[in-house]
Design a protein around this nucleic acid. Structure first.
Lengths: 343, 343
DNA sequence: GAACTCATCCAAAGCGTTTTGAATAGACCA
DNA sequence: TGGTCTATTCAAAACGCTTTGGATGAGTTC
């Protein structure tokens, strides 16, 4: 059932039917009711492709996921972000289009998204140092919101980010307050913007006390459980092991915990751990006293906020570049305790 | 730059330019070269919406994710499935469209996907007992592949599934061989098809030895870390606790391990655990001797297979209903050992 | 040289919407 | 009565592509 058929059925023009359905005022109440009833009865749904072609709006938002051999963006954290964003999209009638793109053909992919016209805007994921996407997208003229920040971008742009620096500053402060001095930082991929900010917060806390962290205890890689485990094992085998770990995600933290327990140690007593906690729905760190002391900030909420900001941008173009900085809570759990002198 | 402009620029008709670009034979080599060069030079990309409208092909595959208040499909397992599928899509020029839909308006959503014409086919996720989607989609006439099986569907349909029953039969056999008799089954949501099959395999193994499992030791819920943990705690506090756990996913297994270790027990020595392992990229259970003894079957691979099957279906309609049953490997890890009599 | 092929190209008709620019008819006013 | 509004409706153009059904002219065949 398409518009033409529906119109013929009603003995009306396509124009009138279209206007009736889309809530335009120049249609009498009587015919509008008649049209709506008929549309409902015959299960008429406008064809999106035709509508898009006519209006120039795709009613879809793109999420481009860079994939490289070394790096896999489709992780559980990303999933929760998507879940949040998709709540907003579906409420507002938008679809979510995901395309994974090899790192090297990023530029072509973005240009294509624009000219192909399959999306009205997009979310930029995982900004890195020297990220060219902000510039590129501004040039292309496709509305976008960055999840995170592209620190070295010159031009203004929209973003939603967590206050990584502050969160990690506070977490480090807590560990230092507890007497820890040798703290290992298990961080994300080296050139990711959030990795850099978290490290900055970590170093800032040391610096504020006239101290400085041991660079040999700073590790960066993709945040898998295995990375957390292996790094912790390595650290704990050192002649001068760290007494605490600060970890960038709950996933490697699970690995850290595993390593600690393998060695017969107890988290919170023998070794302190603070993790960043994205509040993932399948890996919750919630209890009366949570397992991990954590800087918590829901990535799902970040997804919601990003999506809302983007839709605002898409629907009212020219609404200036806006930013949103989310603060993380510092949640006390069972995984931290005072430094126990072993000498 | 659209087709018309490009055609004018070349002093050719739109027809010829279109044919040249799409590789039709009735174009001379000379003009084809000229057209391709000009298209390249001016960065021409056909507008997908217009092309879709003309061809009737959307070049997109839909993934509908049912969401309910009680149940959250967007989990790490699902993410890995998507990662696999999206590899295939992007290689073949398809987009991936994700829409989350409230459980209650499933039917409307599927019908709409068809009439809106935004996808060429779709993947059905998380089939349940009494799932009406197979029937519905057959009626609607949208190509689809089910990830899993809709056991009570009468009509034929395409699916890609793991041999859940066999895998859990084998895992249970192993535990029984090791002397375990009281085995707790920590399973997925009750009405999920895979949950039912896994339970069937579990019971089958008992039955084959003239035994039967304790129904009080069978648990079903959403497979979060917390569920695994809490269930294991409950079990281990019983006066007659299980000596082994069979767990439906690595995520609750991490919780089970946590519970075991909280009690000062050791996995593999005091308590045996076998988990199903979807081989998630961020939660790998791989090492010389993996942490968990597991039935392993890559869900990412399942994603790839499903996507390939669906595209085949979309591109050559009428290619009969096909099925693919993947077998899981039974991988021996550190988490299993013989029953140690405590009396 | 007429008839027929074949290779190459084109104009125009779709695809299913929205939107523009008019047309129609009744109400209202002088 | 004639003229102006206003409310309602419509036919047709537009969106940017693919595809149908010719048209054209050169080459082949008898």
């Amino acid at each position: 059932m398409n518009l033409k058929e529906l119109a013929e059925l009603l003995n009306l023009s396509q124009t009138t039917v279209s206007r009736a359905l889309n809530g335009y005022p120049e249609v009498s109440d009587a015919t509008r009711k008649r049209v709506l009833a008929a549309a409902e009865a015959h299960g008429y749904r406008p064809n999106m492709r035709a509508r898009s072609l006519a209006t120039g709006r795709a009613m879809a938002i793109g999420h481009v996921i860079p994939v490289s051999s070394t790096h896999e963006m489709l992780n559980p954290v990303f999933t929760d972000f998507l879940a949040g964003a998709s709540e907003v999209y579906s409420r507002r009638g938008y679809d979510m289009l995901i395309s994974t793109v090899a790192d090297e053909d990023q530029e072509a992919a973005y240009r294509e998204l624009k000219t192909k016209g399959s999306v009205d805007g997009l979310i930029v994921h995982a900004p890195r140092l020297g990220d060219k996407r902000v510039h590129l997208l501004n040039e292309i003229g496709l509305p976008f919101v960055v999840h995170g920040r592209a620190s070295d971008a010159i031009e203004p742009y929209c973003w939603v980010d967590m206050n990584n620096t502050h969160a990690f500053r506070r977490a480090t402060d807590l560990l230092l307050d507890l007497g820890h001095r040798r703290i290992a930082l298990i961080n994300g991929m080296e050139d990711m913007d959030f990795t850099i900010r978290r490290r900055a917060g970590f170093e800032e806390a040391y610096a504020a006390r006239g101290l400085s962290p041991d660079p040999a205890l700073i590790f960066t890689d993709e945040m898998t459980e295995g990375f957390g485990h292996d790094t912790a094992r390595t650290c704990l085998a050192l002649s001068d092991p760290p007494s605490a770990f600060l970890v960038s995600s709950i996933i490697p933290s699970i690995g850290v915990r595993r390593a600690i327990e393998e060695l017969g140690l107890r988290m919170g007593r023998d070794i302190s751990v603070i993790t960043h906690d994205d509040d993932l729905s399948y890996l919750r760190n919630r209890a009366d006293v949570p397992v991990f002391t954590a800087t918590r900030s829901s990535v799902r909420e970040a997804g919601r906020r990003s999506a809302e900001m983007l839709l605002r941008l898409v629907e009212t173009p020219g609404s200036g570049p806006c930013q949103e900085l989310l603060e993380a809570d510092l949640i006390l759990g069972q995984s931290t305790g005072p430094l126990t002198k072993s000498d």
